[in-house]
């Protein structure tokens, strides 16, 4: 199977969830594990930490596949949240407080239209991000990858905090405009 971002990862996760399909898992692993590893290394993890943590994230994906709701998050988004929480847990040794579960929970089968709409939104978002002016995109990536607050980015880049904030605000406005 070619490693493209167009692969139907939602369908792969569904096969993992319902059939405990190891072949589907291997393909998801092939695409996402190296991306999770890169994310963790750009967040300050050593190669060994990132390798171990990425394996852990993928094991969590298998073990918690029944909690994945394709009507609420794309596979990439769900995997991102698992990786982020692992990073907080392992590298920062902190708990990650999550909001209260919504009353309707993940048990019911999601509406197929919602799943398709969400996937389309995710594709548009990825395209809109790629389209951002270089400086704006880099700041957003830093905020996610490098585990930096906006003030820390300001200290690191030497740019005034106001500039950082207004560039990020502009980037978000562009994203919203393209999504709207």
């Amino acid at each position: 199977m070619p490693d493209t971002i167009d692969a139907d990862w939602t369908e792969h996760l569904s096969r993992i969830r319902h059939d405990r399909d190891q072949e589907a898992f291997a393909e998801v692993f092939g695409h996402f594990a190296p991306r999770v590893k890169a994310f963790l290394m750009r967040s300050g993890a050593t190669e060994a930490q990132a390798e171990d943590c990425a394996q852990d994230v993928m094991a969590t994906l298998w073990n918690k596949a029944h909690l994945y709701d394709p009507g609420r998050a794309s596979p990439a988004t769900w995997i991102f949240t698992i990786a982020r929480n692992r990073r907080i847990d392992t590298l920062r040794k902190q708990r990650r407080p999550e909001p209260e579960d919504l009353p309707w929970g993940p048990e019911a089968e999601p509406d197929q239209e919602d799943v398709v709409a969400l996937q389309q939104d995710s594709d548009r978002l990825a395209a809109a991000l790629a389209d951002l002016p270089e400086k704006q995109r880099q700041l957003i990536e830093r905020a996610y990858f490098a585990d930096l607050t906006h003030s820390e980015i300001a200290a690191e880049t030497g740019l005034p905090l106001g500039t950082i904030k207004s560039r990020i605000r502009l980037a978000l406005e562009r994203l919203r405009h393209k999504m709207g």
Partner: peptide, 27 residues
Amino acid sequence: DAVGGAILDTSPPRAMAPGALQATLAR
């Protein structure tokens, strides 16, 4: 969160160690 997902998905990957998939299946 979706912005994080898009960044994760479109960033250059870093190769996993040889045997990583088997090690993960063992976990």
